[in-house]
Simulated scan of single mutants.
Amino acid sequence: MIRMTNVCKGGGFLKAVIVMGILGLTACSSEPASLQQGPDAEMTKEGLVRVDHSKLDLSYARPDVNWANYTKLYFEPVKVTNDHPADYQPPKIDKRADGLNATYELPQEALAKMSEQFSLTVKEVFNSEQPFELVAQPGPNTLVIEAAVTDIRLSAPLESSRRSFSSMGRTYTENSGSMMLLAVIKDGETGEVLAKAADRGQGFNQWSQNTQVFNWGDVKTVYRSWVNDFKNALMNAGAE
């Protein structure tokens, strides 16, 4: 598993939050996030405009969206994969230290567990006390959220695959690794893309024992932070 947090370029702690940046509500820099303006504004083929001073590596949003119109949320099952970009160079396995069976790729059951945990966290955060209704299918006044976790890069081979695991040894790393978060938000009735973003989350730079138990707890903590901040972002955007 993996510990996920994020750090703004230039220093300072940043939660692994996608939608806060998508909606342009917060930013890493001292300047407020805003859509680019003028003839030189960077625009996607869907008509989304680049968000300047976003807390994310890359984010775009459609201008003039009335977020207050959306009172329902439909979360697609989160896709979690071991996929990597074409130029990815996998870490070399030290067969003497790590063992012949060491791997940096998560098994399918771990990927499925990460996806299921996200859905559980969404239900815990968006409960009956919240102003948004979770629905089982897209429709009017509904935001469709498609999120994915990919390009997972562990700082050490999977715990159960290491030689140290079977010999009761310990592995310490400076951080647990990183993974890419991707998100697309659509109108539930028309399917129109309203916003999208990509951001790489990275673990704390502090030496600690690298184990599945502690890293899994970190995954759940980050999921809760992301969903809570997404909820707050929607509430703030709808109030403007």
Rank of each mutant, 00 (worst) to 15 (best):
D40C: 14
F126I: 06
V227I: 15
T26R: 13
A110R: 10
C28D: 06
E31T: 12
D199H: 07
N215F: 00
K55E: 15
R170D: 11
I93G: 00
L23D: 05
P138D: 05
F132M: 06
F13Y: 15
G21L: 04
W226L: 08
M179S: 06
I22D: 15
Q130V: 11
F13W: 14
L58P: 04
K45P: 14
A183E: 14
S30C: 12
K123T: 11
L35R: 05
E129T: 14
T221A: 03
Q202G: 02
R224F: 10
T81I: 09
A148N: 13
R3E: 07
L23Y: 03
A86C: 09
D87M: 05
S225A: 13
W226H: 09
V144T: 04
L14I: 08
D64Y: 03
R163S: 11
D187H: 06
P157E: 03
R170I: 10
Y60R: 04
Q108A: 15
H84A: 13
A97S: 08
A147I: 01
A27L: 09
F165P: 02
M235V: 12
R224P: 09
E159Y: 06
K72W: 08
D64M: 03
D98T: 04
R3Q: 03
G11T: 04
P63V: 11
N101K: 15
W67P: 08
Y223Q: 15
P77D: 12
S164C: 01
M168G: 00
T121A: 12
A33R: 01
V144M: 06
G217V: 02
E76D: 14
V149H: 04
P32H: 02
R200P: 01
S155T: 06
E116I: 02
A183C: 13
S115Y: 07
